[in-house]
């Protein structure tokens, strides 16, 4: 009898929970909230004396839109969330290169925003843009070098403080010039050996699952490593002012 009463009680609780979840979901949808999602695959290709080496990562961008009628010019607001990680290019004995979620040009928003810059289309965070990019299929492009991500390696894979810039793009605003100046800081040959060069970085829309590979290559960034004390002393604007969030 107790078992039956327990079952009925549990059943009631689950039913109430289901109704609450359904009500919240319905309220969300009826309130005009919408969610747009897309996935893209980014691939980094290096030329090496052993042939071309590549690494890829699939990332997902989720944009929640909610009505914001008080702003008549743009009566909605968006919240962007990125699922994904840095690209790992394992060069064997030469070392491991990480192509980060951030870049010199787009900063920490590189991972979530790069699709807007890679492909021609409406402005990204407009309703028109969100509809366009969430339905974009079979699109692939090689990134303009100025939008390439920051790339790093660890001289000691057990110590995050040995992070070293392998490839970076530095954007500089130039007074009285329409176009910004872009300088490329390329240390790939110096760090990985003669003949190691960046060929291209591509971005491709995909339905593939989000990749989760980077963690097994990363050192710990924990307090015991003293990483945050080390990174804090780097000057503002230093491309190595990065954290674990630039990797995953």
């Amino acid at each position: 009898m107790d078992k039956i009463l327990g079952f009925i009680k549990a059943h009631k609780i689950l039913s109430v929970a289901a109704v609450i979840i359904l009500a919240i979901g319905t309220a969300w949808a009826m309130d005009g909230h919408e969610t747009y999602t897309w996935r893209y695959k980014t691939t980094v290709t290096l030329e090496t004396p052993e042939g071309e080496k590549t690494g890829s990562a699939v990332r997902e961008v989720i944009v929640n839109v909610k009505p914001y009628p008080i702003d008549t010019r743009r009566p909605y607001r968006t919240k962007v969330h990125l699922k994904g990680e840095a690209v790992v290019i394992d060069l064997g004995k030469r070392g491991v290169l990480f192509s980060l979620l951030s870049s010199g040009n787009l900063g920490v928003n590189h991972g979530s925003d790069i699709v807007f810059y890679a492909f021609d289309g409406p402005a990204g965070l407009t309703l028109e843009g969100l509809k366009y990019y969430s339905h974009l299929k079979d699109a692939k492009t090689s990134l303009d070098p100025k939008f390439r991500p920051t790339m790093v390696m660890f001289k000691d894979m057990g110590d995050p403080k040995t992070v070293t810039l392998a490839y970076g793009v530095k954007m500089t605003s130039v007074p009285n010039q329409a176009e910004n100046q872009y300088d490329y800081d390329d240390h790939l040959e110096e760090l990985f050996g003669k003949g190691v060069k960046l060929k291209e970085v591509t971005v491709e829309m995909t339905d593939d699952p989000v990749t989760r590979e980077v963690s097994r290559y990363l050192p710990s960034f924990g307090e015991e490593t003293g990483y945050w004390k080390w990174v804090e002393q780097l000057p503002y604007g230093d491309p190595l002012r990065i954290g674990e969030s630039d990797f995953k």
Binding site: D71, R74, R77, T78, K79, V80, G124, L125, G129
Partner: peptide, 9 residues
């Protein structure tokens, strides 16, 4: 969001 909108737009 407004700030990001400006950047991307």
């Amino acid at each position: 969001d407004g700030a990001r909108f400006n950047t991307i737009n």
